[in-house]
Design a protein around this nucleic acid. Sequence first.
DNA 1: CTGGGGAGGGGGCCC
DNA 2: GGGGCCCCCTCCCCA
Length: 459
Amino acid sequence: MQKEVRQPQRWFNTADITVSHQSNLLKQLNHQRRQELFCDCSVLVEGQLFRAHRNVLFASSGYFRMLLSQGPDGLPDSVSATFDVFSPETFTVILDFIYSGQLDLSSHNVIEVMSAASYLQMNNVINYCKNFIKSSLDISVKDEESERCLSLSETCSFTSGAGEDASEQQQQGPCSVSPPPALWTRDNSRSQSSFMGKDPDQDASASALKTNPSSPANELSAEAEDLHDPQDPLYTLPGSERRRGKGGTKRRAPNSSRSNQHDDLDIQEARTQKAEKAEELYATLPPIVGVIGHFNKDSNPIMRFKCPFCTHTVKRKADLKRHLRCHTGERPYPCQACNKRFTRLEHLRSHFETIHQARKLVCRKCKCQVTEETGHVVCEGTRRYRMCTACIQEVGCDDIPIDGMEGPNEEPALLLGVDGEEEGDTKRSWMVTDDDDLAEDSGADLIIQQVDDSDEELQ
DNA sequence: CTGGGGAGGGGGCCC
DNA sequence: GGGGCCCCCTCCCCA
């Protein structure tokens, strides 16, 4: 048997070498870009010319990938692209990120960078921006105390692994990102990312948001839910119903602390800050966040407006503004009767009519037609119906507290939103009232009032 | 457990 | 651009 002669092994950390190599390569490319060496692509942004390498742009941006692969077989020596939908400063941030892995985000540019990234189809940048915004919007009371202790900074820098493959980044999402050391704030009263402790895996991949509730794109919905954190005092309104999940309304927050003035102050403070955040987001929205949507039959692109927070696109800017409320949590339409707040006036109106009025002139029980005279409004917990006299008698007047029988000084008992509202025992909350009585209810007249969160009284 | 109904939320689109 | 309507979806409660 021949003895194997083993060569002494040398252990190389190939991962380190790879990273180092990629880093050096990127630095070289960036150096070449700054020297305008071998740049074969010109990008004109609002009149300002940027030079870059088409292969780098191709590798980094879906938009450029599409643009550069659309041309004829033989690509010209130089290609150019023109943008008017974002500013040169924004493109500088994007380009610097492409060539360095450093994304310089601040409160002033994050929205526009996100929109530009959306336009350029750079999902990794979108993810970083989303986390930046998400962290800055996260003002849950739960974390409030710890947040206050942390240091503040006006700007931050997201760093991706140098030379990291773009697609890989997209798959990894923000997990591969070093979280910002601190987050922007307007008043320096709070800061610091909370997403270090959260699952940051939020994929911004564009897929149908509505068609498949379990699709990855619907993580965006989950993210929106995060913004509607049930712990959020903005969301759990005093005396109002608490929402769990989309559309759910039946859970009520424990009212043990409702009378606590401190809590009210905290709620008010949080609401004010959230309103400011929403205001700031609106203020910093770029003038155009248009993207090329589908093509019409004439092969002309149809411009749509893309939400900077998710993949949703709309035809009209006004619709986008309306849509944005589901991300900002802004609820400018409070119900005067129960303080519950709504994103839209029509929802408030609908809520008022169904909850605080009983418009349908049919008996709830026997479905017969009733009139204003023969059909009484019956309150069952949070709901109001009309019932005919016969059905009321059938149910039994003894079991149904009738409005007007409770004494003239009795609180009109709009049960919704009243502190100490009873739960479970619905019989005790049954009421019958005539329309005239209803009109005397404190909340029976719908007063439409669009208010700032900051102005709203919490009583 | 399941289906119906109520309530709320969101999108599309017309006025 | 705002208001409003219609439609659909989701969640929850209840029988």
